[in-house]
Design a protein around this nucleic acid. Structure first.
Lengths: 152, 152
DNA sequence: CACTTAAATTTGTACCAACAAATATTGTAT
DNA sequence: ATACAATATTTGTTGGTACAAATTTAAGTG
């Protein structure tokens, strides 16, 4: 669907505006598709991301700052996301012996099992959403995105 | 910044994954920049969007369904966004005479004045964020986004 | 008119984000 | 050792999102 149609605009927008609006609409679309999958497993996107980060630790624990560093959206409340995961027994938390300010977070066996269930669906959806773009187009798209964040 | 670096991934990701993650990171970036501007005027993004939609009505009122239709993210709670704007006296609400189920929302003079103040800053930021892409690249970028939403 | 269905909005709940302030622990300087 | 700064996490508050259920009013049917 065209952007003007999507937001039901009655004026003709400049291309750079349309591109930015399309970026927001499309990321919303991607988020919605991902949410729909995760929801069937009782997970939210940030919860899933925390689990993936912990899995990436390969047995090593992570403290909250580390998790926060690796999140796509650097938000401030990893504590409360982890709380939810602990309720579901997907992760566990213990105070770091060396530095009692730090909290070590582990993924549990339950957590691993849930990830293994979710991942095939997740990756299928990722492939589907990018299936209309060939390698060259993906590369272009990637570079264009980088140019928007040029002043980051 | 590269995507792997951004999420501190230690594995090499496939291009289609990197592109999708970059999409989410970049839309987050755009949202953050926009929020930063609106915040100095005491507005949130959805509040600003509702104001813009009402301005686009050119004197005509809008009901809640209309506003919702034109929002970038079609969320369910226009009522509460409008409540915030009424508190700030940027919009007013009155029950439609013809159909008392419908609520007519108007932008106030205050609302217009605030929009006139915000818009130059907003448009400057839009131009800045797209300044590294020429017209042809913007067109490509726009088309690539559409291809991701192909199954919409 | 009574009854049912549909439309438009409101309300409730659970979760997340942004921000600021509070708390707890460690490190450092004198 | 005491005071102070830095680090890591937690907590409180406001605003937003998604979803479902409730409410209100309008419209249609016998």
């Amino acid at each position: 669907m065209d952007v003007e149609n999507h937001i039901k605009s009655n004026q003709t927008l400049k291309l750079h505006k349309k591109a930015l609006i399309n970026l927001l609409i499309t990321s919303q679309y991607v988020n919605d598709r991902i949410n729909a999958i995760l929801k069937t497993f009782g997970l939210t996107t940030p919860q899933f991301n925390v689990l993936r980060i912990l899995k990436g630790q390969k047995g090593q624990p992570a403290n909250l700052s580390t998790i926060q560093d690796r999140m796509i959206s650097k938000m401030s409340n990893t504590t409360r996301i982890v709380d939810k995961l602990i309720e579901k027994e997907l992760v566990s938390r213990q105070i770091c012996k060396d530095n009692r300010r730090k909290i070590e977070i582990f993924i549990t066996d339950n957590g691993h099992q849930l990830l293994d269930q979710v991942n095939p669906h997740f990756e299928k959806e990722e492939r589907l959403m990018t299936s209309q773009l060939n390698e060259n187009e993906l590369k272009e798209f990637y570079n264009h995105l980088n140019k928007i964040r040029i002043n980051e």
